[in-house]
Design a binder for these strands. Structure first.
Lengths: 130, 130
DNA sequence: GTCTATACGGATAAATTTGTCCCTATTGAA
DNA sequence: TTCAATAGGGACAAATTTATCCGTATAGAC
């Protein structure tokens, strides 16, 4: 279960609510891979190896609570669960796909500046400690 | 200055790098308002009242380091600074605008489910403490 | 019997992000 | 002379997010 917030979010404009439902390290990827047909939790975990199982579950729960995905539990053993996009979730996919394409298009440049930014921070730290 | 990360991010796909440069509570809004013509830090702070000045500065620094915006410092007193989108930053604007429109279009529904999700969490807590 | 796969979440720790409070500087206005 | 506006950041605290470790449960394969 997600943790309760002490500070209430403001929900004044579209970007506010967008942030609430999409702000989470793996949420965009989860929607992306669900849309690609990877519906079961285990599959999603194998697609997103850097994320822990626990956190993916929490973020899936939030996506479900925010009605971007639905969860279908099959009464079987071993257990089987499938996630699907809701209509609202599907309506977001063109934008998420565009984000992915934008990232792909700028990946080299961005990887470089991200790494450079990390180095610059290190420099500052080194100067400080001398 | 942003804090140094201990865990290195993976930058394998477009969505990875996208997350690195756009993951920050106010970054999308900053780009949005800079694109709207609110270029000076003070203006941006007045547009985004919920954010503290300190954090906006840090996220602006990151956007600059990631080359989505440029910063122009005018050698004046009192100081004057203006941010502008880079070409790469501009190329992101259609998508950010689409995100804003999506949020606007679903704002009522999403506000409702966000609030409902918060209530459900509270319920769970109440049951636990009895 | 033991191991794997499936799925879930509590308790807790670590990392990260965000916010608060304080300080620096200078110009011009009241 | 004091105050507001301008911009920035250090030190620190709080909130939030993410990760780790452990435990539940059952069917089937070996």
């Amino acid at each position: 279960m997600a943790y309760k917030k002490k500070i209430q979010p403001s929900l004044n404009c579209g970007l506010d609510v967008l942030g609430e439902v999409l702000y989470g390290k793996w949420k965009i990827r989860l929607l992306y891979f669900i849309n690609q047909g990877h519906k079961r939790p285990g599959e999603l975990q194998r697609q997103i190896l850097d994320a822990s199982r626990r956190v993916l579950n929490m973020q899936l729960n939030e996506l479900e609570a925010h009605e971007l995905v639905t969860k279908k539990i099959f009464p079987q053993l071993p257990p089987k669960v499938e996630y699907s996009l809701t209509t609202m979730g599907e309506s977001l996919m063109p934008i998420i796909n565009a984000l992915g394409q934008w990232g792909d298009a700028h990946q080299e440049k961005l990887s470089a500046v991200i790494r450079q930014a990390a180095i610059n921070e290190t420099k500052v730290i080194l100067i400080k400690t001398e």
